[in-house]
Design a protein around this nucleic acid. Structure first.
Ligand SMILES: [Mn+2]
Ligand SMILES: [Mn+2]
Ligand SMILES: [Zn+2]
Ligand SMILES: [Zn+2]
Lengths: 143, 143
DNA sequence: TAGACTAATTATAACGATTATAAAGTAATA
DNA sequence: TATTACTTTATAATCGTTATAATTAGTCTA
């Protein structure tokens, strides 16, 4: 049930001293219930019915607040907009080159690559990023 | 010797019917001899002594031409500018979180992850992207 | 509860990287 | 040489995002 997750997120924010405004509640709710990886603008448009006066800056500001609280992760891509993921446990993504869909995908983690990189380059390794690109089943069906 | 690589790149372009202008030659030369992963603007600034009238659009246009010819790869990052890599054979990068330096790093390739992703998600996998982030030896020394 | 303080939202301007446009220049072709 | 296509240049436009300043709302304290 996603309302439990929303409540947990709200408690988390309250403990960090962040006020729960109607806009913040709605943005959080949308992130959690959409079960997707929306852009700031998609969130903005999805909520403009309920909040016709909300500024796009409010969406960006609050996504930053949520990020700092550890409630969302930002997924950055070269050309286009960032996407936001409210699943903060470690996981990877596979992205459709044709329609842009992003699907979660779990894998043990690439510790071996990290430690090899460390020994070869002399870097102190902190983290890594990995995504897979391909064609999703729906797009495959349409040739 | 990097001049051999420049000549090979030029032959490649000629065969593809691309004219070798002085600007194109200089951009290629800079990419190959700098042995780094410069941004379009870094290339532009590096060449403004030799080409005081060159437009930044020329740099972008020609980087696209080179990309389409398979001579360079574009490395995209969320916030900041793209970087360009004239080493087009498969390799990974490790990036310093402190100074931004990008270092090449070879690893067998993650075929296993790709095939697992394919079977789990139903995608037809084409490629993947992986980078490692950490602190480079020089930045470690400065605490 | 009034007044003061603080935080959040809004509207709008600014920013930086990149791309589009149109004019002018250059090379290839006939 | 005249025609044509390609390339460069200068400049404007675009897009995602952030900064600014004014307004509004919430919280705290006397
Ligand atoms: Mn995800
Ligand atoms: Mn490289
Ligand atoms: Zn698809
Ligand atoms: Zn460093």
């Amino acid at each position: 049930m996603s309302s439990a997750k929303i409540n947990a997120a709200i408690d988390n924010l309250k403990e960090a001293g962040v006020r729960i405004t109607p806009q913040r509640h709605a943005i959080l709710e949308h992130l959690i219930e959409s079960m997707s990886h929306p852009t700031a603008d998609e969130i903005y448009k999805a909520l403009e019915g309920k909040f016709p006066n909300m500024s796009v800056a409010t969406v960006y500001n609050n996504l930053r607040v949520f990020k700092e609280a550890g409630l969302v992760k930002e997924l950055t891509y070269g050309d286009s907009s960032s996407r936001f993921d409210c699943v903060t446990t470690d996981h990877y993504h596979i992205i459709c080159d044709s329609c842009g869909k992003i699907v979660d995908f779990h894998y043990p983690g690439l510790d071996e690559v990290e430690s090899l990189a460390e020994s070869v380059t002399g870097f102190e390794v902190g983290r890594h990023r990995m995504e897979i690109y391909g064609i999703c089943p729906e797009c495959k069906r349409k040739h």
